[in-house]
Design a protein around this nucleic acid. Structure first.
Lengths: 240, 240
DNA sequence: CAGTGGTCTAGACCACTAA
DNA sequence: TAGTGGTCTAGACCACTGC
């Protein structure tokens, strides 16, 4: 009854075939693969189908096409890692993170916040203070800042429980464009240590995220302080 | 036949056109876009060209196609960030990182190393100890472990100065690897603090990288301890 | 059933590279 | 000039959805 699931489109079979040749060493980095018209003959498909198949491998970094020269096997780099930075995935898939909204206010921006958001000091901003925790106790303390926009309603639930880029996107009714995350290490002090239930000097990850429009204008800034003993970020190399 | 007075290919113009409609709010998340055959009419192109254009937006997360139903605008997420973890890019583009090889030996693996590399305790491994520094002083201390393979020559320069995935790849004469990076915070103690020229209790980033074959077998493990005040990792959302 | 997306063909012409 | 990849057409048939 599952004959259907065995069907694979021609372009996909071609891509898998070439991928295997690369992975078992039959094709080495720098080698050219046969020209598209030859592949079309060999596999008994049309040129468009060959191109569709090769485009998959180009996209996934196995091949690189150079117009007028040919298509070549590339040397994939394992340096580029993908990091999923959202509340849900912070601790992996097994552990659930809960969020508590500690505070939500609309103060005027101090120098640091104004600087990060590209505003004049004294402008109103939305400031959210959150605590992330699990059954075992507190994990991270988190501040989110975004420019206050008059007349745009603010849903507490959204701003506290959604991913930050999404919060910003909704608040501005715009699609997010880019975000950067800076990861550093620091030690917890004073109130931070207290809220996270550790003594002063406890190591922490400091995670600063800036959300920007396409043109680079910042529209959101968040800073998370996470207990070093409870939060480990995981990044993986991109693979199929 | 349509005039071809523009620089950009038709599929690309179509994709940009729809992307703009999404970004300026003309098309909202959840909205269906016109069916492919209608777009073909509207833009005066063939179906294949429409599909090629839409596939770009699907790939980039703007659209989602559901067979038999339609193609819909999605809510793009900025949660996926890309992190470039190599010595050269550790401190950004302006600051140069220098590397000093402190030690290179072939001891037997202790329990922890054996565990990470999937070896029996007592197996020989290659152990590299490096110091990363700039003009301002030491930045990070780094250990690299890989299984010792008899008869494979070991180039000090390579193993100390190349990116770790590349080191492993060369040593095994294999090039398709996956890697994972775990980022946590800790404090420096004892010898680590001494080498990095800080007092005990100084905050540090702990970066553990595991290199694996396609089948998941580990073939390299590295652990870097970086001074929290000198190293900040930067991750960015991938953008078109 | 009609409407949608998914795959595929057999051509065509263009842009680029190299000998 | 010959060979390559890049774009594009005008159809075709299939698979899936919803009525």
């Amino acid at each position: 009854m599952e004959e259907r699931s065995e069907y694979l489109p021609a372009y996909y079979r071609l891509a898998e075939d070439i991928r295997e040749k690369i992975e078992n060493g039959e094709l080495k980095p720098g080698d050219p693969i046969p020209p598209a018209n030859r592949l079309a003959e060999q596999y008994g498909v049309s040129l468009m189908t060959v191109r569709q198949g090769l485009s998959i491998l180009v996209r996934r970094g196995y091949l690189k096409s150079i117009q007028g020269k040919g298509t070549f096997v590339t040397i994939p780099s394992a340096d580029a890692l993908t990091l999923n930075f959202s509340d849900k995935h912070l601790l992996g898939e097994d552990k659930e993170v809960k969020v508590k909204l500690l505070n939500l206010e609309i103060p005027v921006a101090d120098d640091m916040v104004a600087d990060r958001l590209g505003l004049k000091a004294g402008t109103k901003v939305i400031k959210v203070k959150r605590l992330l925790y699990t059954d075992e106790g507190p994990v991270a303390l988190d501040f989110r800042f975004l420019p206050y926009i008059k007349g745009v309603p603010l849903l507490e639930k959204e701003i506290a429980y959604a991913a930050f880029p999404e919060v910003v996107a909704r608040h501005r009714e715009i699609f997010l464009l880019q975000s950067t995350l800076e990861i550093s290490a620091c030690v917890l002090q004073g109130e931070e240590a207290e809220v996270l239930e550790v003594s002063e000097g406890h190591p922490a990850l400091c995670l600063e995220q800036v959300i920007r429009l396409k043109d680079g204008r910042p529209v959101g800034w968040s800073r998370m302080l996470a207990r070093g003993d409870r939060l480990t970020l995981k990044a993986t190399s991109r693979s199929g």
